[in-house]
């Protein structure tokens, strides 16, 4: 089973309530933004999503309740950010509690997967979907982190290196 193909099936979502804020540092069109915006602006919501996801993973900030107003931006994942997305999933998988959360560290939980496989569902797809939901929560957590940062420094996005500054601040709050 080609995992890349399965991951590419993932849709790109956004929380509609965050979109106006996200537009301060990233396009939310889902496709490439025309060249011309400077370095502090991410050209597509794929890039923005990866950026917020990384921040969420680093700081451990995660919005467990998920989207408040979920809206699909792209039906499937784009090739340009597939590598980064996969890497992020691997980072999520490295978190000690995640293996437990997706039910791979308890026999009873694994048995449940076997039951699901009996209903002809692919275990890979189920696990990847679970990971995707967790990624979404980390990405939303990343957005919350950036929101808090902006509350403290409202002019942050006037700085061409705002994204770098925020990222470095996230690294300072890194959890292992």
């Amino acid at each position: 089973m080609n995992i890349d193909i399965l991951i590419k099936e993932h849709s790109l979502y956004i929380d509609k309530e965050d979109e106006e804020f996200i537009n301060k540092f990233s396009s939310t069109t889902g496709t490439k933004f025309p060249k011309g915006k400077l370095g502090n602006y991410l050209g597509s919501w794929f890039e923005g999503y990866i950026y917020t996801l990384l921040i969420g993973i680093i700081t451990g900030e995660r919005r467990y309740e998920g989207f408040q107003d979920k809206q699909q931006k792209m039906r499937s994942w784009n090739s340009a950010t597939l590598e980064q997305y996969k890497y992020c999933i691997s980072l999520v998988l490295s978190k000690p509690d995640i293996i437990g959360e997706i039910g791979l560290n308890k026999r009873e939980e694994v048995d449940k997967y076997i039951e699901l496989t009996n209903e002809n569902e692919s275990v890979t797809i189920i696990i990847l979907n679970k990971l995707k939901d967790i990624c979404d929560q980390f990405s939303l957590g990343g957005v919350d982190f950036i929101k808090r940062y902006e509350e403290q420094d409202p002019e942050i996005f006037d700085d061409p290196f705002a994204l770098k500054t925020i990222f470095e601040s996230a690294l300072e709050n890194k959890i292992d």
Partner: peptide
């Protein structure tokens, strides 16, 4: 997007 952020994580 391709190198820096990830290398720093």
């Amino acid at each position: 997007l391709n190198e820096f952020y990830f290398s720093k994580v």
